[in-house]
Amino acid sequence: MCTTCGCGQTTDQVQTIQAAPASKEVVMRGLLAENDHQAAHNRAHLDACGVFAINLMSSPGAGKTSLLEATIEALKGELGIAVIEGDLETENDAERIRAKGVPAIQITTGTACHLDAQLVHRALHRLDLQGIDLLFIENVGNLVCPASFDLGQHRNVTLLSVPEGDDKPAKYPVMFRASDLILCTKADLLPFMTEFAPQRAEQHLRVLANAAPFLLVSARQPETLTSWLQWLRDELRAQRERLHAGHTTRPNLQGLSEPQADREGAIPGHTHGPRHAHV
């Protein structure tokens, strides 16, 4: 339920099976049903505004904000970009993004180690999506909890930086299983950190039954960003085609994996425009 503002609510997949007398209830309900419902609402809002949203996840310090700065620089004049920044404290990251001339909303979570759909919803209220093509949601740096919360994004992108070691996917399978794309960042350090083998990192990812692309990038070497930028353009084009056909898509799910076709479905009803003003 949209408790923040009471705006148009979307349908949820929650199913309740009540098969017993009043004293014993058999229910089959996802514990995160409330979050998932809010996330579906966020996605419907983004779809109504034609915005493609990406949830960026990684350890603290893997280079999410630097990657965003370099991406904004590379796509300047080509695509409209907005950013939602999640951190425990400070406006530092939002200020870095605003310095690039892009609107940024900072969410400070206090002690919470992840963003949830409700926090993102409140941030969307403060963001004018007019003219925005891509929304990056930079999650709190953490390879554990963010994987469990759908925010309403269309794709999950996980960063794995070279200094972290190539076995991170094996150590954090829940996160890396939920990734639609892995960016191996700080690739300019590979010559100095020979213990990191990109092939090994990719192999750890495949062992999690994840076929997501694995790309080497360095925010300091803009020429290494080509495949990442092309992935963004291709995903945005595919999403526009889906929206045109009345469909949308969800990220690689945290829960049970589904065939790709099941991740794409009709857009639930959504009644308000890009300014997200509720009456």
Binding site: S23, K24, M28, L31, G255, L256
Partner: peptide, 13 residues
């Protein structure tokens, strides 16, 4: 293996 489910409840009414 990825379930996060509330499966069953017993209530006293």
């Amino acid at each position: 293996g990825a379930e996060l489910l509330l499966a069953h409840l017993e209530l006293e009414a």
